[in-house]
Design a protein around this nucleic acid. Structure first.
Lengths: 144, 144
DNA sequence: TATTGTTATACTCTATAACTATA
DNA sequence: TATAGTTATAGAGTATAACAATA
């Protein structure tokens, strides 16, 4: 089989509902109230932002409407993982950021994911792991 | 950044709703009535099967209940892409397979995907493309 | 009694629209 | 007038349950 067809097959498996759902579940399972398959993408986007941001900013990044982000943030805030504070320069806006507890949980999520990947590639030569990482980053850098 | 974190970041982008949705849309857009983001997974599973199979068989493969597969198959059948025939050895079962038209459309889908991938990797050395394909296949072979 | 496909129903998640407050 | 967040509503997609037919 040509390389492109091989990539196509593998890609189909990875983008499947089951793969994603299983991945999110594995990352969040039993970790913290309020963090689950649903809230994880918003949580993760706030982590990536690294600074307080509004729901309207996060929305496009996670592919959700601001109304949905708003409710996810509320759920996360009730669970103590996210802080909601009014923007002093524009009092319409609510700035979202991770609390200290949120950051701690984030670390655990990241560790889980790292460990899952390391375990998955444990029998690969180190040079292959690094090359795969470079390739995958390049491949994922923009949508097909 | 360590290789596992790099893989983690890239993986997050690929499993995102936007990536998958964009991919399915690109594959099926304007190709045929009845084939869209929703019916594509069932269509694709029937293609992979290569022989007539029942809805109950396909269900677990695409992560859908047999009732949903049943309706997707009906949609595809109405569009002329799928054939539904009673299993002579077990008259409860309805065997699903691609029609000649379905096979032709399948070829187009596969060509679109191959071309999208080839275009995406057009500036990679050939050896890198082949190595990436091997790695990704290995990586996707089982869930994290 | 168990299983297949189908249909009807309920549930989940999301977008849209309407509302309030602020710019 | 425009935009932020929120809330209420409707839509899309799915699983679950119930059914008839067959094993």
């Amino acid at each position: 089989m040509d390389y492109a067809s091989t990539v196509a097959e593998a890609l189909a498996a990875i983008v499947s509902r089951d793969f994603r759902s299983g991945l999110y579940l594995k990352l969040t399972e039993g970790l913290h109230d309020g963090l689950d398959e649903l809230t994880y993408p918003t949580f993760s986007a706030l982590a990536r932002a690294g600074e307080p941001v509004s729901a309207a900013t996060i929305g496009p990044q996670v592919g959700l409407d601001r109304s949905v982000v708003s409710r996810r943030a509320q759920t996360l805030a009730r669970a103590g993982l996210v802080r909601e504070e009014s923007d002093p320069t524009d009092r319409r806006r609510v700035l979202l950021s991770l609390t200290a507890e949120g950051l701690a949980v984030l670390d655990q999520c990241r560790r889980r994911l790292r460990e899952a990947i390391e375990s998955r590639l444990s029998d690969w030569p180190q040079s292959d792991r690094e090359e795969f990482a470079r390739h995958l980053r390049e491949f994922a850098a923009s949508p097909l």
